[in-house]
Design a protein around this nucleic acid. Structure first.
Lengths: 351, 351
DNA sequence: CTGAAAGCGCTTACAG
DNA sequence: CTGAAAGCGCTTACAG
């Protein structure tokens, strides 16, 4: 199989033919230079005389040469791929972020390598191992439950970008969305509509985002002189099912309320269904506000008022940050601020 | 940086320490055998004496050796990765399929490499190039617009599994869902509920799935002795927005109808919103049936009657098929049949 | 059953 | 500015 060593026994590879991949050696030969020189042009590692450069460019074009990333990875230690630990590849929220990562990485010829952590420290740690064994050049961690320490430690040997938390460490950049402010905005919106009995469907308490949104909710209430009551906070788990269930439990307590703020859109969808099941109309009987602004929120029934989280942008920014880290720069990334999207699930309170 | 060649000038790598990755050479030395033998055990390429096997296993364990997939890829020509051309990584439908692929691949230590084709032949062709240049061992193509010929040609050099079409070729396996039957089932359900004026919101006509669903719709109509009318077929594009728009156009024609079958759930969501905007209730005024059974359909308002498409299973089956192809076997895969999920968006016709 | 050696396709000091 | 050569960490005929 080592065709390189069989001298002259096989036909020269016709341009674009299927006779095996074109190697850098063939390009060098065709251009009458050494492999080193071809490699240098490919990598912009050194200045090369105009004549040779031209000859090489021509050879590359006519042979249709594409560098083998695997060989590059072994020899140069760079694989031109960045690992992405996403918690669930089919997440409606992170989907857009993944697309953002893809788009940004593509510009520089990098490929993302997606792995799923499933919100499980052990699994995420394994993901980290897989990614490192595959020699990715950098790693993006979308939230997750890895400790700050584990992340910082990893960043000592490879650039790391983490979202969903604020963390300072060498070789590491973090991107955090202002969940507190988002929670505050959502709640304030409801207050401005005249609501005073506002229930909150909380997210997973292990999830920092969820906790911050709760704090935002509480802050808005207190700023308006409304008593914050524990009994108005219903636990949830970020899923539609948990939102549905939360409404059942809220109603079971017999408390009065004219509005609900759900810590994410998925729970809001479940809550909307729960309300409907109990004969309550949104927004006529109860106003509903979500968080995330999933693509589906626009077509929910009714279209959901929510806090827009720039997932796609987040992905682009995270990818841009690893790329900067890879280039040896300290990333400068600015997260967009939370934005309230007023749609049809919230309205003025009626008495 | 070539620590291998500096004899004795550095401390022996402490087990689990961060002193650079453990190589097969270190394992061989520790076990007192050659690299070849270690390699053979790793790959199950040959029978090895019990004594050596034990020594090697121990060395691997204490050193914490993990084979470098990059080197493996270069030397052996296998990267233990399979490329996946998904049309949009954030697609609500394909998300589950991607998860299925991940899960199935993981069992044998393979990693998926996801790229997005964006329903664009040129982009998909580029994806194919990227994947091959990255030396993936096999390729899964989730639908897309590549020609049968392009796929078959690709399959000559690397195992290919394609979904969403039926195609026979050496080194290739195809997995097709019975869209015709699904379309028939959905329509028949509406007919059984007494509906006779059933509008159809079509998908992208370039998309074979869409065409087959239309044929299923038509077949069900004709089997029930209901005239098939072109005017009841409204064009759509598989997006929520196109579903909303389709309803507007349908209503604008002034035709009577008591039910709508949308060629996918996303359009059904848009249609539901459109109906509501016009003061029409689902299912009281018009019954609505979708296709796909997205996770969101369960929490739509009202929960959507739809055809269940086993996306997760599809992913697992596709991955299993490449794995079988890789093992040199002709894959035997059985696609689950379409299943009607009756929920709350459809009901008996009222006069 | 097992080693020594060549080779995978690049990159990168090391010398001009 | 440019080559020859070694090396990346494995696998795999080729010989015992």
């Amino acid at each position: 199989m080592n065709s390189r060593t069989e001298k002259g026994t096989h036909a020269p590879p016709a341009p674009g033919s299927a006779s095996g991949p074109v190697t850098i050696e063939m390009v060098a030969r065709a251009a009458g230079v050494s492999q080193s020189t071809v490699s240098r042009i490919l990598n912009g590692t050194a200045v090369v005389s105009e004549a040779k450069r031209k000859a090489i460019d021509d050879a590359i074009a006519t042979l249709g040469f594409v560098p083998n990333p695997v060989a590059r990875g072994l020899a140069g230690g760079r694989t031109f791929s960045v690992g992405v630990i996403t918690q669930a590849i089919d997440s409606p929220f992170y989907g857009a972020a993944l697309r953002g990562i893809e788009d940004e990485l593509e510009v520089l010829g990098y490929s993302p390598l997606f792995v799923s952590g499933h919100w499980n420290v052990a699994v995420e740690a394994r993901c980290l191992d897989v990614l490192r064994s595959r020699r990715v050049d950098g790693i993006i961690v979308l939230t997750g439950r890895l400790t700050d320490q584990a992340l910082a430690s990893c960043a000592r040997s490879i650039p790391v970008v983490v979202t969903g938390r604020t963390l300072m460490a060498p070789g590491l950049a973090s991107l955090n969305f202002d969940n507190f402010e988002g929670g505050r905005l959502a709640t304030q919106h409801l207050i401005e509509l005249g609501h005073r009995r506002i229930a909150f469907i909380a997210g997973d308490p292990e999830h920092p985002d969820a906790v911050e949104r709760l704090h935002g909710y509480r802050a808005a209430l207190e700023a308006a002189g409304i008593r914050f009551g524990r009994e108005m906070v219903i636990s949830g788990g970020f899923s539609e099912a948990s939102g549905l269930d939360a409404v059942d439990r809220l109603l079971a307590t017999g408390q009065e309320f004219s509005a609900i703020f759900a810590a994410n859109d998925q729970m809001a969808f479940g809550a909307a269904l729960g309300l409907q099941r109990h004969g309550l109309r949104v927004p006529d009987d109860v106003s509903l506000v979500g968080f995330d602004d999933l693509p589906a929120s626009l077509y929910a029934h009714p279209p959901l008022t929510t806090i827009h989280q720039p997932a796609y942008e987040l992905g682009r920014l995270a990818a841009s940050a690893v790329l900067q880290l890879l280039a040896g720069n300290q990333p400068v990334v600015e997260m967009p601020a939370p934005l309230l999207m007023v749609r049809e699930s919230s309205r003025q309170r009626r008495d």
